[in-house]
Simulated scan of single mutants.
Amino acid sequence: MSNAYIALADGRVLEARARAPGRTRGELVFTTAYTGYEESLTDPSYAEQVLTFSYPLIGNYGVRSERFESDSVQPRAAIARELTDDVAEWLATEDVPAVDHVDTREIVTSVREEGAMACGIVAGEDVTPEDAVAEMEACKPMSDHTDIGAQVSVSEPTVHEGGGEADIALVDCGAKGSIISSLTERGADVHVFPYDVTPEQVADVDPDVLFVSNGPGDPENFVAAQAVVDAFAGELPIAGICLGQQIVASALGGTTEKMSFGHRGVNQPVQDLRTDRVVMTTQNHGYTVADTGPLEVTQVNVNDDTVEGLDSEELDVITRQYHPEANPGPHDSLSFFDDVLALADDRQPIAAN
């Protein structure tokens, strides 16, 4: 096998085994999920990041496209203790560098102690540690990726029919496919709009609910999505997941902040403050809501008290920081999508301008 090197912002360069060749850079993060590598590797929320798997063996049940959350691999590169040939060949076909035979425990510990950091990876023939360092030094902070929405969003509006029970206007900031299917399976028609959609385009379909999806990067860079939320707040029910929660909170007067290493995995405990019930959730985010503005905190993370759920009866808003659709992960919170459809049932006509 050919050489590979991983350069970290803390000054270390780790040697690894190349499984899929290439040179790239990104923010180094990790997921604690034991399964679901196909879903994780196709999750648009990993755009511009280098994904490390903490579970040691990745690929032990093959690669099946029906599990994909998008049309392509989304992280800039993948790191594992051991990658099977199936996964390595898939990543090579996608031109995504992949390495293994590295101590992923050391990488995960470094990210937990020092936070998500810039990373450079080179894999293949004739690569050097200096090549990896050069890639790392060219890595931009996530907040500097101001156009990241364009990388993961649809370019033109599309419609996914589910039976006409409700019309959902979904702002695609990097939506997982299972979010859309969770809505269509409940009878909703989902009108998917690009991340830079205008309020006028949304109004043209006269939706019952405005839904802001998950996605990568800094929520403050999704200015158009915030403008859409602001335009319809108080007139149209609004829902959001992950980045969507952050965008909704920001649009309504709240603030967000970057976390040290984020939440990425399928075993994050979330407590509902109204019922005291704790459910296990799937998460993938590096930012969180700091100031909730007019929205009520209804759910928190048991581990660190970060905001996991926001509601407003007055504004007809319901958002979740975690992924109720899971894929991979527990299905404890699938009822969120029933709550979204209930918002549609209660919808009042949009006031005339």
Rank of each mutant, 00 (worst) to 15 (best):
A77V: 13
A134N: 08
D147Y: 13
Q151F: 12
W90E: 07
M117K: 05
R112C: 09
V154F: 11
E156M: 09
V154H: 02
G115I: 02
I79N: 07
T158A: 15
T104P: 01
A80G: 04
A123T: 03
D126G: 06
E130W: 01
T146Q: 12
E114P: 00
P97F: 06
G120L: 06
R67I: 02
A77G: 01
A138P: 05
T146N: 04
E137S: 11
A118I: 01
V108H: 05
E161Y: 07
A166G: 09
Y55L: 06
I148F: 12
S110Y: 06
I168D: 02
K140V: 03
A98C: 13
A80R: 12
V96C: 05
A166L: 11
A78G: 03
A78T: 14
V111W: 08
D103L: 07
P75W: 06
E66P: 00
C173A: 15
T84L: 12
G115T: 08
R64N: 02
D86E: 06
V108C: 10
I148E: 01
K140P: 00
V73H: 07
K176V: 07
G149V: 06
A98T: 10
L57I: 14
L57C: 12
A78S: 05
G124P: 01
I121R: 08
M142G: 00
S110L: 15
S110K: 12
G164I: 01
G59N: 05
E156C: 12
E89V: 08
M117G: 00
R112G: 03
T93I: 04
M142R: 05
D131Y: 03
D100S: 14
D144S: 11
C173V: 03
E69C: 04
P141G: 02
I107K: 04
C173R: 08
D147Q: 13
M117I: 01
V152F: 08
V111F: 05
A134H: 15
E106D: 13
E106M: 11
S72M: 03
A175H: 00
A98L: 10
P75C: 00
M136K: 13
P56I: 15
T109E: 13
G164C: 04
D147P: 12
E156N: 15
G174T: 13
V171M: 09
M136W: 14
D86A: 09
S143V: 15
T158D: 14
P129A: 15
A169R: 07
A150M: 04
Y55T: 10
S65K: 11
S143N: 13
H101F: 11
E66D: 11
R81Y: 07
E130G: 01
D131V: 01
D71A: 10
D103H: 15
I58M: 06
L170G: 06
K140T: 00
A116I: 09
N60C: 13
E113H: 10
V87L: 00
I79T: 06
I79L: 11
V111M: 10
E156S: 15
Q151T: 11
